[in-house]
Design a protein around this nucleic acid. Structure first.
Length: 310
DNA sequence: TTGTGTTTTATTGCCTCC
DNA sequence: GGAGGCAATAAAACACAA
């Protein structure tokens, strides 16, 4: 054992201390219906928990037989036999009483770590061994941690679902706006033709001017901004559209994270986007985003999350 | 009653801190 | 090197459906 810790079994080893009264006081609890003065327990109970439990701390079968025996024992030989039997049985686990658990729970709520003094005091109050108290706290901390992780998972899941819904709406809005740009551009071209204006040198079809996913891989793109800085459109914060332009994370829709240059570009109706482009919804792998990728796959830093719990 | 899944108590081994 | 914490695990106790 690396830590050199030597555990004494709290059952047989302690029971083997040949001090029956200690054994009884610390590990044997009569049922609540049983008057204490009918019991053969040398000395007085150190704790109300020893007699107030609704469920016997020593809940294994044979308790009643043992109790009746201790009330009526009349011979040394039988005592030894019974101790043997008790020692054998006490190797099994015993559950704490409801009252003991409630007391421990209250104590845990107050402070989930256990200083040595408090451990000893609790053990004394509950009629348990300090090691039992320590183990209970250890297990309780483990349960608390598990619950906490479940809560955190649920809350992250909810955040993710909400963001995904936002993203879906944004994709729809983007498509709609693209369509609008196409129509307006066509209209402009048509009007220009009707007035006899010469075509712009590189004005081909309007749809060819539009940014598209097909052009992925370029360093930057020039995108006509149709609804620049409109904070809210159809229930969607369109500022998220600017995420790639400098905002690190789309959580603050009411604030513009644009630089002065970007503001200027906005006023000109143009916004340079970095290589980050909006992927098509079906292209996104929500389950396993590439680290640091510039998309809405939400590359979460697992370590940052998991480490806080420790 | 019995099989099975869940919860609770306890142990073991490793790690960190003093 | 000892004390204590934690993760993993064992196993008893318990709950409950069939």
């Amino acid at each position: 054992m690396a830590g050199g810790r030597v555990y004494r079994s709290n059952t047989s080893a302690d029971a083997g201390s040949n001090n029956l009264s200690v054994l009884l006081q610390s590990q044997w609890v009569p049922s609540s219906s049983e008057p204490l003065d009918t019991l053969f327990i040398p000395g007085s109970s150190p704790s109300p928990f020893l007699v107030s439990g609704t469920r016997s701390m020593v809940s294994f079968e044979g308790v009643d037989r043992r109790r009746s025996y201790f009330r009526t024992f009349d011979g040394e030989e039988k005592v030894e036999e019974d101790i043997e039997e008790y020692l054998h049985r006490s190797e099994k686990k015993r559950r704490l009483t409801v009252d003991q658990v409630q007391f421990l729970e209250k104590s845990f709520e107050a402070e989930n770590k256990l200083e040595p003094d408090r451990k000893v005091q609790l053990a004394k109050d509950l009629g348990l061994q300090s090691r039992q108290v320590a183990i209970w706290f250890q297990n309780r901390r483990a349960r608390w941690k598990t619950k906490q992780l479940e809560k955190d998972y649920d809350s992250l899941q909810a955040s993710y679902n909400s963001l995904k819904a936002d993203y879906d709406n944004l994709v729809k809005e983007t498509d709609k706006l693209k369509e609008e740009v196409v129509q307006l551009t066509d209209k402009l071209l048509l009007e220009g033709k009707e007035k006899g204006e010469p075509e712009l040198p590189d004005a081909k079809t309007s749809s060819q001017e539009l940014p598209s996913e097909a052009a992925e891989g370029e360093e930057s793109k020039v995108v006509p901004v149709v609804s620049a800085k409109s904070d809210y459109t159809e229930g969607v914060h369109s500022s998220v559209l600017l995420e790639g332009a400098g905002s690190s994370y789309p959580f603050e829709p009411d604030q513009s994270d644009l630089s002065q240059d970007e503001e200027d570009n906005l006023s000109k109706g143009l916004l340079h986007l970095p290589s980050c482009v909006f992927p098509k919804l079906q292209d996104i792998d929500y389950s396993d985003p590439p680290a640091g990728s510039c998309n809405f796959g939400f590359p979460l830093d697992d370590h940052a999350f998991w480490s806080w719990a420790y």
